[in-house]
Nucleic acid binder design. Sequence first.
DNA 1: TGAGACGGTAAACTAAATTTACTACAATGT
DNA 2: ACATTGTAGTAAATTTAGTTTACCGTCTCA
Lengths: 139, 139
Amino acid sequence: MLIGALLRVPAQAIHRRIINELNAAGFDDLRVPHMAVLQFPGPDGVRPGVLAERAGMSKQAMNQLLRSLEGLGYIARSDSKDDGRTRVVRFTTRGRQAYSKIADILRDIEREWTAELGPKRFAELKALLVRVWESPLPW
Amino acid sequence: MLIGALLRVPAQAIHRRIINELNAAGFDDLRVPHMAVLQFPGPDGVRPGVLAERAGMSKQAMNQLLRSLEGLGYIARSDSKDDGRTRVVRFTTRGRQAYSKIADILRDIEREWTAELGPKRFAELKALLVRVWESPLPW
DNA sequence: TGAGACGGTAAACTAAATTTACTACAATGT
DNA sequence: ACATTGTAGTAAATTTAGTTTACCGTCTCA
């Protein structure tokens, strides 16, 4: 089994579960593409262009998502003070609630994995993934 | 750092790298959506409906991808012998080459991660991910 | 042997992305 | 000071990708 599938399959499963539980928790106007915005570390205080780069999509595509999320009342785009070109994305209360719900779901998942692997092995798994994260590998 | 991002970010990076290197290696007519078909464990000998379920998409969407890949010469769809309803996807030579190239790229990535983490820790990481894979967790 | 289920396919529609093009502002250089 | 170049964001038009709806042929089993 190669590392690609080993990472992809659980990552996808987590992604779907987040969307489902978010919808079930009353945030039922959030769709799959919106997740590109809500992904860690979240859009609060960040400029649209940076969000686009993080999500690996064009600024225009990100802008459509932001407009949609703004219309749904999850975020607001405000002008920046010091630089007239830039704007900053801010969570509304509802947006913050949704983001916080995602963290809840992820903590549930972590609890389940801990129960399955045992606390020590789960900690080890996370530690290794953090090492990869912090390494200078090409990504 | 929660498990969602720790899995998602490297998985996405690997995905992009596979597409880029595949394109650079001469398979430049393969696009992002085609990857849903080429994902482990590959489509060879598998029915369209099963591939759709694996990829988490409708049978119709999968069918469009298969038609596209058939037009590009990567796969063929042949009638099944025993069941007149079913068809089976088969790699062409070119398809097998592409699939094998993906495995090459993944092995390169594994080598890099091994160099970064050390062979022991990389083996440990994979072993833990396999444990998650084989566990009865809801995914 | 006929009703219903299954597997696959296609057309039409919807959703979501990119391409192209533009505006506003900032930074730089002369 | 002002023209030039670059940056950030946005929007319209287009392309791409996916779902919904509908259908046909084949299998199963009562």
